[in-house]
Amino acid sequence: MSSSVTSYRNSHLKDLEAEAIYVMREVAAQFERPVLLFSGGKDSIVMVHLARKAFHPAPIPFPLMHVDTGHNFPETIVFRDKLVDELGVKLHVASVQDAIDKGRVVEETGPEASRNGLQIVPLLDALQEHQFDAAFGGGRRDEEKARAKERFFSHRDRFGQWDPKNQRPELWKLYNGHKNVGENFRVFPLSNWTEMDVWQYIGFENIDIPHLYFAHEREVFDRRGTLLAKTDFVSLLPGEALERRTIRFRTIGDATCTGAVLSSADSMDKIIQEVAAARETERGGRHDDQRSEAAMEDRKKQGYF
C-alpha cells in the first residue's frame, strides 16, 4: 500500500493539485476581494477542497458565491449549506429569480427555456455590489473548444466581458493580476484538469460529493435525446412521458437542462471506469450547449464563467 501512496504523491494529480494551490494562493495575495463561485457541482467542490489545502491551517480567506438559477435539485442546496456550515465560510447567493423579479433579466419562454444564459446579469451585479475583484471558476480547458485558450487569470473589462483577442500571455508561474479600478479577473485553478482527473482526484482524496453523481432511480423523460429529470420547473411536452430509470448525472447545473445518463455506477470506482469508457463529453448532456457550435464562446464574451 505504501507504494501506491508514494505513486500518488508523484502522480499527475499531485502536479495538478500543486498548480491549483499555487494559483489560489496567488489570487489571495494579489487581490483584495476574491470570491469562489460555487455551483454545487463537482468542479466547485474540488475547488473548495483545494482552497482548504492552500490556506491550511488558516480558514479559507474568501467567501463562496452561488449564482442560483432557482432551478436546483434540492440535494444541491442541502449539500451546499452543509459544506458552508462545516467550513465556516460566508456564502453569498446571487439569485436569478431576484433578477427576474427586479426586471434585470427576462425569463426565456417555451419548452427549451433555460436559465443558464440568465446567470450572467446577477453574477455581474453581485460582483459589483460586493466589489469582488477576482472570482474563482471551476472551468476547465478540456470542456469546450472555446475554453482551450482560456488563461488561469482571465481578465474582464468593466462590463465583465472577455475579449478573446486581448488576453495577456501567461508565462511560467508568473500570473499578472494588475488591473484598472472596476475591472476584475475570472480565475480558473482547474484549467489543466480533465473530467477524468477530477473524478480520480475526488476518489483518491475521499471528497464528499452529492449523491446525484451516483447511480440512483429517478423519474426522467427524453427530450430530443437528452434525459431530463422530473422537477417542479419543467412540464412535459406532448409525446414525452415519465419513466423510472437508473441514472446518474455527470454535471449538476440548472435542473431544467442538465441531462442524466443511464448508468449503474453507484461507487467512485464504477464512475471512474464509466468515465474512462465514455464516448461522449460531459457537456454532451447539457441541453443548451447544443444550441450552436459556438454557444459557449458567445456566452463567455458576455461574462459567463
Partner: peptide
C-alpha cells in the same frame, strides 16, 4: 490518501 488508495481498483 491511504484509505482512498486501499479502496481503489486496479484501474484506479
Amino acid at each position: 490518501i491511504m484509505n482512498a488508495a486501499e479502496g481503489s481498483t486496479t484501474l484506479g
